[in-house]
Design a protein around this nucleic acid. Structure first.
Lengths: 117, 117
DNA sequence: CTGGATCCTCGATGATACTG
DNA sequence: CAGTATCATCGAGGATCCAG
């Protein structure tokens, strides 16, 4: 087995790309949302205020590519499709959830006394 | 005390802005770096391959605004300035470090079998 | 309902040059 | 060394229309 650790501090290391995927504004919101269970396109649109259809689709697609989200198409008509976390995605969601919570908890501290003259 | 929790899922909530700050590509790299101790501009430039002077400055400035990083100017000449994590930043760095490590650990899983036809 | 394809704009980012 | 200012570019992202 390889023991070459990816190092995002090196410009060419693909792991930096991953950081970009995860650090993505919308991914950071979509992933924890799916902790609550499978969601459909329209549901996600409603849950995440301000996201455009385009970005949602794009985000989901990318998350699927990286094995974080599973897209399930029921092949019905009218179309029914939902998205859920893969095991890998679930694992990541925990971490991101922690991050989100940190933000929520420390929001005041971050914004207060900003440059208190 | 207020008990109104910030909710990044609401478009207008300022917490979303915070998510953006933290989720930022460069912030995600700078913050954990400072865990190793105070660093100077040039050091950071060297440590983070590919970052431009402009983005580094901009990133540091923003982190300082949000009370995550402390900028110390020794007022010497030639100029000597270094940056270190604030207590708040230190706390955040732990979380982000976890995220980064997750990426490093699960890098293979994310990229392997991508669309294994 | 899901989401693909287009057009268009604006802002983020990099490169460069300059100052203290 | 630290940092600002300027310019030019490129691509992210939104709005819209269309289709299965």
């Amino acid at each position: 087995m390889l023991d070459i650790k990816p190092d995002p501090y090196i410009a060419l290391c693909p792991s930096r790309q991953i950081i970009a995927v995860i650090g993505d504004k919308w991914s950071l919101l979509v992933i924890p949302l799916l902790l609550e269970g499978p969601m459909r396109n329209a549901e996600l649109m409603r849950a995440i205020e301000g996201i455009s259809q385009k970005m949602l689709t794009q985000t989901l697609k990318r998350l699927e590519e990286y094995n974080l989200v599973i897209r399930q198409d029921y092949g019905e008509v009218p179309p029914r499709v939902d998205y859920r976390l893969s095991p890998l995605g679930l694992s990541l969601a925990q971490v991101i959830g922690t991050l989100d919570n940190w933000v929520i908890e420390n929001f005041d501290a971050m914004t207060q006394t900003q440059k208190q003259a």
